[in-house]
Design a protein around this nucleic acid. Structure first.
Lengths: 378, 378
DNA sequence: GATAATTAATTTGATATCGAAAAATGTAGC
DNA sequence: GCTACATTTTTCGATATCAAATTAATTATC
């Protein structure tokens, strides 16, 4: 249906993804998953084996009939790099061809970084992952904050990094590493990480609630990331708060971001900066019965509820430092929803903390590189 | 890539859609639009012409080079029926093969309809469209209120029609008319109408604000309808109102639906039923400077703003009786947004009344049947 | 232990699509 | 009027995919 050569390789790329996600494990199940005939699936599998991407790994007997010849990805076929950039630091992660995490790396940016510092740190961070050198780098994924144009490969905007405007970062990195580079907003990268490494493996509609230094959400709908017409979907941190408030009183971000939430739990004022290091300590101390707790829970319940009724996502995953509060927080939020919403019937809200930790952004970026990878079997 | 026969026909179906939407007008532009080689496009066009779906309609000279041989859909190749069902009435519309509206029909349901009444009225309404009988019915689209499962063809729920639960309506209608039947939620059908007949022709991300007897939105994201994990996306009429309110005070629908809005504009209480007939009269009388007007505008601005920051849609289209208020209402709402939102920068909100009238639902249903149609050229 | 049933993988001839070249049909410049 | 150029459409041999039949490898049944 498309250009023939491209179609072939794209099909083989899809095959790799199905095998990685365990949606398929043999030639016949691949044929089903890819919606091609058994002969075609077999053909491509042979090519992929010949090129060193796959290997025949024994048999698997079903209830009856000839047993499947199971296929495995060869971990040594190559690796993918994932990088998450924030205002303060660069986190990178290495996953092998079959999707196992091999290495992590963390590097801090200078206090008032400019674009050049940042780019160098990113490059350095990726180089640091490649300790072994005996396996090729097949792709790089980068999660960057703020507005990001994945198609053009431009990181459009970041207020905290000097002259970081419309940086052609994919071009820079692909020139450096001679591989494809995928760029995505970092919270949206987290959403992809949730698909590959989290609990949302087989979901088509879910939401990441990103309560970090700011507040935003990432949406997967119909199995695809929602970016919006101007790449600004999910920026609900800019909602007014309180929601009825007028005359520029404040934003949702000011009250529900991770620093704000921890300040509120500690009964502190909105003034001053709260060091991130304190988060886990504060999380342990948090009084889960006090009025500060209840107010925060109630506020979150309102926001999650609004999202829920609007998008009808299967699950909302809380991501960020607030996950340190444990499942209790999300459970309380879910339980508080009926108080705020008049007709909670038919509304099985699911709100759970992400099981992915601090690496989710880098992991998602690596996943994006993995998803985009197209093998060549010449 | 898929089953061969199905692929062929599906490709030809896509070709028809591209021609209808004027995204393509010749063999070569079809090849581009469909992402197939010129030879393949030409081949399918020949088949479609031979089967009577298309005709060669002259030449069109570009700046240079051989002129295009323009292709036209043959209007007499068949027609599509679109039906919108609401609690009170059944509206149907007939469009020919090239997408022209041929006929409309309106039928009222009995006062307390049951499922059987409703089904019969729908069937009757479609039969009424087919006055000529000299052109075949190729597909039926149905927009139904409430929860609707397009895949299974089930109209799940409607509180105002007796025993209207999990009605296999597509099965019933396709058995009656011997054509494919497409089912969709009626507001989502309106969104499709906007794509084919409205201003949102080339948009990938837009929102329909449906302020009618209830209040809901329909979303198109990445060019596809958003239905949600439980087919309940867009039901923001169930949001609490005021948005900060607790303890089941009321819903957004209670304050912003069309009847509620007109009551508010007239300074009436929330009690009693407001006849729909009065809407246009009230629209003419509406004082567009008074405090009732300003409050309504401000409330709408808040809701549209929340949607806008969350989804980053290109445009929000107002649909329903409030469009009778004219463009002034939407303009005022758009202008009021900066008052409620702290950081309106980078937020080119577009909020306009739908140019489609009362038939939008039926028109969208017909469009869905049109989109789904797959020709057979044996 | 032979045979039937079941599922997986492969082989094979038919066909849909491709890419590239050729043919067709116009404009632009001289 | 002729040639050069641009663009669309068609032609044609090569190839990717398919559907169906065949082979393969196992369990179930008698």
């Amino acid at each position: 249906m498309r250009t023939k050569g491209a179609d072939q390789s794209a099909l083989q790329g899809q095959a790799l993804l199905h095998l990685r996600s365990r949606r398929a494990s043999s030639r016949s199940s691949l044929a089903q998953a890819l919606d091609v005939s058994p002969s075609t699936a077999g053909l491509h599998v042979d090519h992929l084996i010949a090129a060193g991407f796959l290997e025949d790994s024994g048999r698997e007997q079903g209830a009856m009939g000839r047993p499947k010849r199971t296929l495995s990805l060869r971990p040594d076929a190559g690796w993918f790099a994932g990088v998450e950039l924030t205002a303060e630091r660069v986190q990178s992660i290495q996953i092998d061809f079959s999707g196992n995490i091999l290495a992590k790396h963390l590097e801090f940016l200078p206090s008032h970084p400019n674009a050049e510092d940042t780019i160098n740190t990113i490059i350095n961070s990726i180089k640091n992952l490649d300790a072994s050198q005996n396996s090729p780098l097949l792709g790089v994924g980068l999660g960057a904050p703020g507005l990001v144009d994945p198609q053009k490969g431009l990181a459009l905007d970041h207020s905290l990094i000097r002259n970081w405007t419309s940086v052609p970062i994919t071009q820079i990195l692909s020139h450096q590493f001679h591989t494809p580079v995928i760029l995505e907003n970092n919270l949206r990268a987290v959403a992809i990480a949730e698909r590959w490494f989290g609990a949302g493996k087989h979901l088509e509609d879910y939401v990441i609630i990103g309560a970090r230094s700011g507040f935003g959400i990432a949406m997967v709908q119909n199995g695809r990331l929602t970016r919006g017409a101007h790449l600004a979907a999910g920026e609900i941190g800019r909602w007014p708060w309180p929601l009825n408030g007028a005359n520029h009183k404040g934003t949702l971000e000011d009250h529900l971001s991770a620093p704000a939430a921890y300040r509120r739990l500690a009964g502190l004022s909105n003034r001053g900066r709260l060091p991130v290091d304190l988060h886990t300590a504060l999380a342990r101390q948090a009084d889960t019965t006090g009025r500060f707790w209840n107010r925060l829970v109630s506020d979150y319940a309102r926001v999650v509820g609004l999202i829920h009724f609007m998008l009808d996502a299967d699950t909302c995953y809380l991501h960020g430092p607030l996950t340190a509060l444990g499942p209790r927080f999300c459970d309380d939020v879910a339980a508080a929803m009926p108080n705020a919403f008049p007709h909670p019937k038919n509304a099985p809200i699911r709100f759970t903390p992400s099981t992915l930790g601090d690496n989710a952004g880098a992991l998602g970026a690596a996943s994006l590189a993995m998803e985009a990878y197209i093998p060549s079997t010449d």
